[in-house]
């Protein structure tokens, strides 16, 4: 077990009560250099999760509330003419940070959405012909409200693909909710929270994750999974090679955070529904496949011995 990781998980879970799995997944996503999409109702703790992650890992935090009248400049920044200096002066937007919470990303117009998504992909932005590098590490947590559809621009599949994982937080269980109501995991704690003790920087951990060994047997299993999505009648389209790389990267991160420098099939199985959930659709209904059903389907793929 990776002790640093376990203590971070404990610390975050003391603020975000009853959501340990999601915390682990969010950290896995961050260390895998991926971006996270949280799809849930308001008030569940999405913002808290993003904030506490940034705080705990000692990263800068910015938040953008997406609205329909938002322009790309509102995210990336604008150059404004400074009369005193008689020159244009660049005012960086909220994207120049380490952890960016993009709240209700589906409310913005596709033009604005794509400005952010391009930044996520390229790790840099081009404003008025000038290319500016983003911070490292750069981690976007975007949220979507799955229920409200009027006046929203749902992300197309090609854009969804930019997010390594999509998770749901869900309601807390009764015991956790009781603690929330008792004020145990309150905002006040978040304010007082210190940066977690870590022996390695986030960038170093990210570098180490790329070194996690993928054995032939593991790659066989991963390929079997990918081939299954392409040949099984349950899926509308199979996983792309990029999705395959994403799966491997997520499994690497999970394995490393759980103290292994190699991957076992279980590492893949854990991240599987979260990495593929927003990338696969059922052939029959054309709808997304519920997580339980997805796990059942993948359980049909035998693990190579």
């Amino acid at each position: 077990m990776n002790d640093d990781f376990e203590s971070i998980v404990r610390q975050i879970s003391s603020v975000l009560l009853g959501k340990e799995v999601q915390v682990r997944l969010a950290l896995t996503c961050l260390f895998a250099r991926g971006h996270l999409l949280i799809e849930d109702l308001p008030g569940i703790g999405k913002t808290t999760l993003a904030k506490v992650l940034a705080k705990c890992l000692g990263m800068e935090f910015q938040r953008i509330q997406f609205t329909s009248d938002m322009l790309p400049g509102d995210i990336l920044g604008v150059s404004i003419f400074d009369q005193n200096a008689a020159a244009f002066h660049f005012h960086p937007g909220p994207v120049f940070t380490q952890v960016l919470l993009a709240d209700e990303i589906n409310r913005a117009t596709p033009k604005t959405q794509s400005a952010l998504l391009e930044a996520m992909e390229e790790q840099q932005v081009t404003i008025e012909g000038e290319t500016r590098a983003l911070a490292k590490p750069f981690f976007v947590v975007a949220t979507q409200n799955p229920l409200e559809h009027s006046g929203t621009f749902p992300l197309p599949e090609s854009q969804l693909d930019r997010f390594l994982m999509r998770i749901q937080l869900g309601y807390p269980d009764r015991a956790a909710e009781k603690k929330i109501l008792q004020g145990v995991g309150a905002q006040s704690i978040l304010e007082d929270m210190n940066t977690c003790q870590m022996h390695d920087s986030v960038l170093n951990i990210q570098a180490k994750i790329s070194q996690v060994h993928a054995s032939d047997t593991f790659i066989d299993y991963l390929q079997d999974i990918i081939a299954f999505t392409r040949t099984s009648p349950h899926f509308y389209v199979g996983l792309s090679p990029r999705a395959g790389l994403a799966l491997q990267q997520a499994a690497r991160s999970w394995a490393h955070l759980h103290g292994r420098d190699y991957m076992v099939p279980e590492d893949l199985q854990v991240v599987l529904p979260w990495v593929t959930g927003h990338r696969l659709r059922s052939r029959a209904e054309g709808m997304e496949i519920p997580r339980n059903k997805l796990m059942e389907l993948f359980a049909q793929v035998p693990v190579p011995l």
Partner: peptide, 9 residues
């Protein structure tokens, strides 16, 4: 052992 079970599980 179910076919989809990894060795750790």
């Amino acid at each position: 052992r179910k076919p989809g079970m990894g060795p750790l599980d």
